[in-house]
Design a protein around this nucleic acid. Structure first.
Length: 230
DNA sequence: GCGACAG
DNA sequence: ATCTTGTCGC
């Protein structure tokens, strides 16, 4: 693939506009027996990133395996261009997965992005994979604060009213999370599916477990590569 | 010019 | 994102 490390922000913007035309949003029809979560971890000031994807059975959400990879990145973190830092490493982890999930939940936004091209959409188009973005903070859009009760939701839209995703109160009296479709899924289904991934914590199991995995990996508690669980 | 600003 | 202890509230 193209080397993102040498791209300038203007060039990255052009690429986002090109890839954006390939994003497909539609109700999710396929099967849903496996779901996965993707995340990245790194040491502050370091150019080494630790990427990981955790595969879980659905709807039990029991983890069945994970893929972990280490990679060098030079593209800086620039709001709106997160994909250029994390997607390359995530694709490496993706290729190592013996079994691809039906849906991949990415830590970050999908179309809830200035150019509708958040990391979940970016990854989805490149991997031709159905993806959902689950973020802890807003990047773009406007919304009304959902009720304090677990399960409350409100729409996230652009200033013209176009729907970008949902703001979901996954736990009572806890900050909400932002859910948006990445690729090959639509807004209603991305929310419906993500809701089924909430168990005991604020964050959905797929990305929560992926986050734990990449952190342990970075700290040397887990070896690189693919490992089935059971 | 002033805020906002995924990870 | 990461670092980092205690503290407040359900």
């Amino acid at each position: 693939m193209l080397d993102y490390n040498e791209l300038t922000v203007p060039e990255a913007t052009l690429l986002q506009r090109e890839l954006q035309e390939k994003v497909m949003l539609a109700p999710y029809k396929g099967p849903l027996n496996y779901i996965a979560g993707a995340d990245i971890s790194f040491n502050k000031f370091s150019t080494t990133v630790y990427a990981g994807i955790v595969l879980l059975k659905f709807p039990s959400l029991i983890p069945v395996g994970y893929s972990l990879v280490k990679k060098e990145v030079h593209f800086p973190y620039v709001p709106g261009f997160l994909a250029f830092r994390e997607v390359p490493a995530l694709l490496d982890a993706w290729e190592q997965l013996p079994l691809k999930p039906d849906i991949l939940v990415v830590d970050g936004h999908g179309i809830a992005h200035p150019r509708r091209m958040g990391i979940a959409s970016h990854f989805g188009v490149l991997a031709q994979q159905a993806t959902i973005g689950s973020a802890k903070k807003k990047l773009y859009g406007v919304y009304e604060e959902p009720g304090p009760e677990k399960g409350s939701v409100s729409l996230l839209t652009d200033r013209k009213g176009q729907v970008l995703g949902n703001v979901l109160r996954s736990k009572t009296n806890v900050k909400p999370i932002f859910v948006s479709p990445g690729h090959l899924v639509d807004v209603p289904d991305s929310l419906r599916i993500l809701r089924q991934c909430i168990q005991k914590y604020r964050l959905p199991e797929p990305t929560r477990l992926a986050h734990n995995a990449v952190n342990q990996f970075r700290l040397g508690a887990i070896p690189e590569g693919w490992t089935g669980m059971s």
